[in-house]
Nucleic acid binder design. Sequence first.
DNA 1: GTTCCGCATGAATCGATAG
DNA 2: ACTATCGATTCATGCGGAA
Lengths: 283, 283
Amino acid sequence: MMDDQIKLYLGDCREVLTEFPDNSVDLIFTSPPYADQRANTYGGIHPNEYVDWFLPITNQLLRVLKPTGTFVLNIKEKVVGGERSTYVLELILEMRKQGWLWTEEFIWHKKNCYPGKWPNRFRDAWERLLQFNKNKKFAMYQDTVRVPMGDWAKTRLKNLSDTDRTRDNSRVGSGFGKNISNWLTRDMAYPTNVLHLATECGNRKHSAVFPKALPEWFIKLFTQPGDVVLDPFMGSGSTVAAARNMERKSVGIEILPEYYELARSNLDGGAATLEFFSAQEVK
Amino acid sequence: MMDDQIKLYLGDCREVLTEFPDNSVDLIFTSPPYADQRANTYGGIHPNEYVDWFLPITNQLLRVLKPTGTFVLNIKEKVVGGERSTYVLELILEMRKQGWLWTEEFIWHKKNCYPGKWPNRFRDAWERLLQFNKNKKFAMYQDTVRVPMGDWAKTRLKNLSDTDRTRDNSRVGSGFGKNISNWLTRDMAYPTNVLHLATECGNRKHSAVFPKALPEWFIKLFTQPGDVVLDPFMGSGSTVAAARNMERKSVGIEILPEYYELARSNLDGGAATLEFFSAQEVK
DNA sequence: GTTCCGCATGAATCGATAG
DNA sequence: ACTATCGATTCATGCGGAA
């Protein structure tokens, strides 16, 4: 009954990914280190070098993704010299040359964005969630993310996922999707490509860069229980944890030992089967 | 006293713009015909040809814009063959080669977006508002667009009004206004780069591409009364009307006679000075 | 137990200062 | 001139302690 499984890799995803088999992942959801951010990991990539650094990774991701799978990339360009950098635009164009299809761009509206005031600019309150696919036909389970009709625009995604989670816990095992669809009535509407979420800040033990509701939403939308979810920039493991809670198999790769250990401890104690790999074991 | 002024041109903006003097416009706000839309105007530009078609126009806009001026471009790529087209990305990159600075990208969240359902895609609820400038320093009047703070302001307002009341009672006479402005500024926050506006679903005679509040917001933000606002793709004249209502001078160009006439009749009867130019007069 | 208030905390950005 | 570092700015959120 407990079919889910977690594999955590400590190492550079540029190397670890090469060991993965072709066409083996249903969903890749990741938030890579933004340019000039996280200087202690991956050396704090300069905006001018970002595309060259990232393209070999997306090439591996293209290989390991199933033909019906989806790659969701959370990213936002920073301001350099008073201008928005263009590396995200260039990345999209280059990934298409690799063979990716740029299917859609979701907007994550961060209600609580970073404060500050500047004479020529307002606060940045949104990030891109770029959807890439290998084929025009891909798996998408739209009914799983329907929202109450009334004030669906105001309804917080977080509330929805909380509701779903408790509902899941009350029902044991099989048929996650079916149960959800049973609960759905004609009062449910499909969402749009704009997501409203607040970042989890404050005294949280580990402040994740995105709320868990974000990977949850895309995992529900693009996978079924038993499918494989991959996060090549695991961080503290939000994506992997979300996948575990929803009974998907998951694979996480993290280059920094402290984050790797943090993810391990966060995930330990769950009912899932865990496997750990150090960089040496992979090679 | 009535210093505002409207000039409407009937003709192709590729030609009309060449007659305009350098550095004469404070704000350009426009929503160009989307690729493959409005097939009877401008020849129904194919997505593949969109950038080549638009670049000569942006080059003219760069010339007529004042050094401290701003160009706001409302645009969204359409889906072609299951993929988002890349012409907007390419346009940004090419405009930078022309000398434009890509200062910012605002998101217009359309609360009531176009209905519909597709098997592999949700409804598109947002559009880009690309801000371009000629220089890092440009005119921006941030105080004009401040918004009430979050629900946090409720309790805050109550407390402040309490203290203010006692203060007012203790002080005789003047000082009231000062207090007012104090808690006004405290309860007003600067907005972010995400705009929440519903589309106007009113008259289907001329379905405006955007609600009048959209150009209004940018006109308030980037111009002062008496400044010059230009819309090279006037349509039914939403931008020009907004500028007139806010006592800015405005210039509109429209290639389609029926839209040109519609804008004329919409704007006529106002208190402003109107000047009309047909294509022949321009040449 | 509720509700209310105080407080720390961010994938930020600019401008000035220092090498 | 050109690049690295630092302080100042600012607001939604969630937690913890207090009434």
